[in-house]
Each structure stands twice: as structure tokens, then as C-alpha cells.
Design a protein around this nucleic acid. Structure first.
Lengths: 167, 167
DNA sequence: AATATCTTTCATTTTTTTTTGAAAGTTTAG
DNA sequence: CTAAACTTTCAAAAAAAAATGAAAGATATT
């Protein structure tokens, strides 16, 4: 395979994968493009390479920066802004899991706590509801804690984790 | 909060969460409904409770069954079909991660291997591409292995995992 | 073998999400 | 201060995804 084709295939695949994980296609594609770019690139270049509009590029770059996985870089003497992606994969994974925990898991936990705390009704239907949502709360809380612990292992957490299971 | 409201809030929240994880809203809602139902329920009831059409219910139930997290149950003497969800959370999580690995991670790995194996070009751009996609391949492969190992711990894998980190 | 009960399929419609592009906003330079 | 060089915003358009519902398929019952 040619380099051009490989790059394009990588960007397309990453984009498609993004959709399956609740991230929009363009956002994932921009991220992919920046991941394999040896140095920071401008918005103009991103638009050109992915064939997208200025507004689209601007909004998705902003979203990536909100996730903390893409950085703005200013080159001296240059008016335009350049962008780079977090390239360290351990760091990338840590940032993504922290952010998802903050945005999705924590709010979900709040709701689970709420709904599992209703006054215990009499019907078996209500009893089962309380029981099941309580279990769900405990489970998600535990999972969230495990994730937090794992990502505390600053460097090479994944390798270390794998070791623990190889023994 | 009233039981009715709690149940509705739970279903809504689960549905919204589903969207963020690349699962469609109705599918997640049906799953939520079945999770808290003390016993198997019919398609008619699902349609009624969630206010959705027959076709929608049918397709999403089928999808849930393809994921292996909802089962069809036949009641003796009954013509209609009834449905239940996997209620054991450890089992549920194991099924979901195995399925996502099969459907998404494995195919992604294949592409990563492909694109990282192009003939090493001369330009630094190509070198960086090969280097980065190779790292990504290694990382994802390792993550997939960890996930596989973790889910092998049949029972209480989450608790056991947490222990390992508490020490 | 005709009817009744229930489920699936899929072309069409509806809803939701994403993208566009031009106007407004911002920052630097002269 | 004004112009030039960029970036952001957001209403409208386009595209994608999901839902509907009626017809076609099953399967059991008489």
C-alpha cells in the first residue's frame, strides 16, 4: 500500500470508529490527522486535507481542545494558529477516561443514587426496581473507582496492568 | 420521588447515556425497561410503556438479542413472546466488552496493522506515520488483551480488580 | 386449508445530527 | 484609528439516523 492510501485509510477508519463511540466523524478524523502529522498544522491545511468547511474545522478543533487532547500552538512571527494532538497514548487514554468519567459517569451516578433512593414501596415491582438500581449504582461506582485508580499510575499504566494479569 | 417518576427518569437517563456511547436511544431504553422489570414482558407492553411503534420495538429487541444481553422467553400456553434482560451486571459487562472487542477493536487492529506495515518511505513524514500507527497498534492490542484477561475472571471480576488496586 | 394471532421487514417519513458559509468578532500591524 | 489576516458563531441547508406503519411472513388453532 502507498503512504497516501495508508494515511487516508487510517483517517477514514478512525473517523468511522469515532461514530461507534459517540464522537462525531469529523472530530475523530481531525484527531487522526493530527496524530500522524509530524508537526503542528494550520486550520487551512486541515480543511484542505479533509475537505471540510472552515466552520466545521473550527468547531471540531474547539471540541477536541475542550477534551484536552489537541493543543493550539503559536509559531513566532505567524499570525495563524497551528494545532497538534496529544501523541503519547498513555496520556491520551488517561485524558479520555477522566473526561468521560466527569461528563458521563458522574452524572449517571447521581441519577442512579436518586432513583434508587425512593421510599421502599410495597409492591414487588418497586422492590425489584430499588434492588436493581442499587446494584447498578454500586457497580458503576466501583467501575469508576477502578478506572480512577488505574489512570493514577501515570506512566505505562497499561503495561503495568497487563503485568498484573500475566503473573 | 414517586416510583413512577423514578422509573421514567431511569429509563430516560439510560437512553440518553446510550446515545453518548453509540447505542441508539430506544435500544438503550428497552434495555433499561427490561433491567428493572421483575419478570419477562411482551412486545405490546414495551410499545405501550415507551410509546414506540411495533416495528421499532421489534428491530431494537432483535439488536439487543444479537448483543446477547436480552433473551426471548416463551411462556407455556402463550402465543406471544416475552423478553428479559441479562440482570447480572458482571455478566452484562463481560458480554458487552466481548462484543465490542469483536465488532470494533478487532477490525480496527486489522487496519492498524495494515497501514503501519507500508514500506518504510524516506520522508520524515512517512517515518512518523509508521512509527505512530505502530505504537497505536501495540497499544490497542495490549488494551484488548487486558480486557480479555479481566473478563476471564468469571465471577466478581470487578471486585477482584478493585482489590488488586487497593492493596 | 382457512383463520387468527403475533412478528418481521422495509419503503417512506420524521427527527436528529452535522455541515456549510457568510457575517460578526478578534487580534495584530502600520 | 483603520485595514488586513484570521477565527468564531449560528441560522439555514444537507446528510444521516431512527421511527413509523402497513404489508408480508410466520406459526398455531379450529
Amino acid at each position: 500500500m502507498e503512504y497516501r492510501d495508508a494515511k487516508s485509510k487510517f483517517i477514514q477508519t478512525w473517523g468511522a470508529l469515532g461514530s461507534q463511540w459517540g464522537i462525531n466523524k469529523t472530530m475523530a478524523q481531525i484527531h487522526a490527522l493530527l496524530m500522524v502529522a509530524p508537526e503542528a498544522i494550520s486550520m487551512e491545511e486541515i480543511m484542505e486535507e479533509l475537505q471540510i468547511s472552515r466552520g466545521n474545522a473550527s468547531m471540531n478543533l474547539r471540541a477536541l481542545m475542550d477534551w484536552g487532547i489537541v493543543y493550539k500552538e503559536l509559531k513566532p512571527g505567524e499570525r495563524r494558529e497551528f494545532f497538534t494532538a496529544e501523541k503519547d497514548l498513555d496520556e491520551l487514554a488517561v485524558k479520555i477516561s477522566r473526561e468521560r468519567s466527569r461528563r458521563e459517569i458522574k452524572p449517571a451516578l447521581k441519577v442512579l443514587k436518586e432513583v434508587s433512593s425512593i421510599e421502599g414501596g410495597t409492591s414487588s415491582e418497586e422492590k425489584h426496581f430499588i434492588d436493581q438500581t442499587t446494584k447498578l449504582y454500586d457497580f458503576v461506582l466501583k467501575a469508576d473507582n477502578v478506572l480512577e485508580k488505574i489512570t493514577e499510575y501515570k506512566d505505562n499504566w497499561l503495561t503495568q496492568l497487563l503485568m498484573k494479569f500475566m503473573k
